[in-house]
C-alpha cells in the first residue's frame, strides 16, 4: 500500500501563455478526504481534470495510485469515480440504465452491473425512481444519481467537482450525508468547492487555491487557528458609512477587515468587541458574533471573498 494515493509535485497546466494551474504540490493519503477550496477560475477544475486523467499536464509530476495518468489514462480512470461539475447523465437512458451502461464502459459484466446498480440506487435513495427518465429527476436527485454512477466501478478515489453547487439546502444536506457515509467506509474523496461549510463538513484536510497556486494547506480547524481568530464580529453601518466608521473602530480586536457591505472584526472575544463598539458610541444597523470560518481564512489570504 503506497503512503499516498495521489502525489502532485509542481503540477502545471498552461493554455497557451495562461497558467491555469501554476506549480501546485500536494499529496492525498488513502482514505483521506481532501479538498481544493477556491473561487471560480482558481484552477480547481483543471487540477481535477488532470487527476482524473482526462487532461495532460504541461509540466511537473503527477502520480495516481502509483501510475502516471499521461501514460496509463484508461488504467488510472478505471480506478477513479468522477462526479463532474455539470451533470452529464445520459438523458436518452432511464435512471437504472444510466448506471448499468456506465458500468459496461468499465468492462464489467451485465450481471455485476445490475447487482451494483440496484445497491447504488438504494444508497442514493433512488430505488423508486429506477425506471424514471433522467429529465424528470430534481437537481438533487440528478446529483445523487451522478454520484451513484461514479461508484459503479468501486473506485479507489472519488473525485467530486463542486458536488453541491446549485442545490437547495435540503438537497445539499442529503448529499453531504451520503458522502459522509462513503468517507466512513474508507473511500478516498477529493473534492473542490467554493462553499466553506461544505469544506468544513467533508474535508479532513484542504488546500486553499487562488490563481492556480496553493495559498495555504491544513485541516479546516488548523487553518482557522493559523489564519484567523476564534470569533468574528460582523457589523453593518450601511454601505456609505462603513468606510468612515472603520477609522473609529480601528484598534478594537486583533484585526479589522472592511468589506463594501460590512466590517469584520477578528477577535477571541466577540462580546467584548461589541461592548467596546457601543461604548465608543457607534450604533451598527446589524451586528453578529460568529465563529471564524474558512471564509475568513480565505479573505485573509487573498483579500477577497470566495464567491464573487
Amino acid at each position: 500500500m503506497p503512503s499516498s494515493v495521489i502525489t502532485a509535485s509542481r503540477l502545471t497546466k498552461k493554455y497557451k501563455e495562461f497558467a491555469a494551474v501554476d506549480g501546485i504540490s500536494f499529496e492525498v493519503a488513502p482514505g483521506e478526504s481532501f479538498g481544493l477550496l477556491g473561487p471560480n477560475g482558481a484552477g480547481k477544475s483543471t487540477t481535477m481534470r488532470m487527476v482524473g486523467a482526462v487532461s495532460t499536464r504541461t509540466s511537473g509530476e503527477l502520480s495516481i495510485l502509483g501510475l502516471d495518468p499521461n501514460e496509463h489514462g484508461p488504467e488510472v480512470r478505471s480506478q477513479l469515480g468522477v462526479v463532474p461539475q455539470q451533470d452529464n447523465l445520459d438523458m436518452e437512458l432511464r435512471v437504472r440504465d444510466n448506471l448499468i451502461v456506465y458500468g459496461r464502459y468499465f468492462g464489467m459484466s451485465r450481471a455485476l452491473c445490475g447487482e451494483k446498480a440496484d445497491a447504488l440506487l438504494e444508497f442514493a435513495q433512488l430505488s423508486d425512481r429506477a425506471k424514471s427518465k433522467v429529465d424528470d429527476l430534481s437537481g438533487g436527485m440528478k446529483r445523487r444519481l451522478t454520484i451513484a454512477r461514479s461508484l459503479m466501478n468501486d473506485p479507489r478515489i472519488l473525485l467530486l467537482d463542486e458536488p453541491t453547487t446549485g442545490l437547495d439546502p435540503q438537497a445539499r444536506h442529503i448529499l453531504w450525508d451520503r458522502l459522509f457515509r462513503l468517507k466512513e467506509q474508507g473511500t478516498t474523496l477529493v473534492l473542490t468547492t467554493h462553499y466553506m461549510d461544505e469544506a468544513e463538513q467533508l474535508c479532513d484536510r484542504l488546500v486553499v487555491v487562488d490563481k492556480g497556486a496553493i495559498m495555504a494547506e491544513g485541516s479546516p480547524a488548523a487553518l482557522i487557528r493559523q489564519y484567523s481568530t476564534r470569533e468574528v464580529v460582523e457589523v453593518r453601518f450601511g454601505s456609505d458609512r462603513n468606510a468612515d466608521v472603520a477609522h473609529e473602530i480601528d484598534g478594537i480586536g486583533d484585526r479589522v477587515e472592511v468589506l463594501p457591505d460590512r466590517i469584520l472584526v477578528y477577535t477571541d472575544d466577540g462580546d467584548a468587541v461589541l461592548a467596546e463598539i457601543s461604548r465608543r458610541g457607534l450604533e451598527p444597523i446589524t451586528s453578529l458574533v460568529r465563529r471564524s470560518s474558512l471564509e475568513d481564512v480565505f479573505l485573509r489570504l487573498t483579500g477577497r471573498s470566495l464567491i464573487e
Binding site: P74, S78, F106, G107, M108, L112, D154, R181
Partner: peptide, 22 residues
C-alpha cells in the same frame, strides 16, 4: 441503506500497450 460496496470487485482492466494503449 446498505453499503454500496458489495465486494472488492476490480473490473477487467485494459493493459494494452503500444501506440493504442491510451
Amino acid at each position: 441503506t446498505a453499503a454500496p460496496m458489495l465486494a472488492p470487485v476490480r473490473p477487467a482492466q485494459s493493459r494494452r500497450t503500444g501506440p493504442l494503449g491510451s
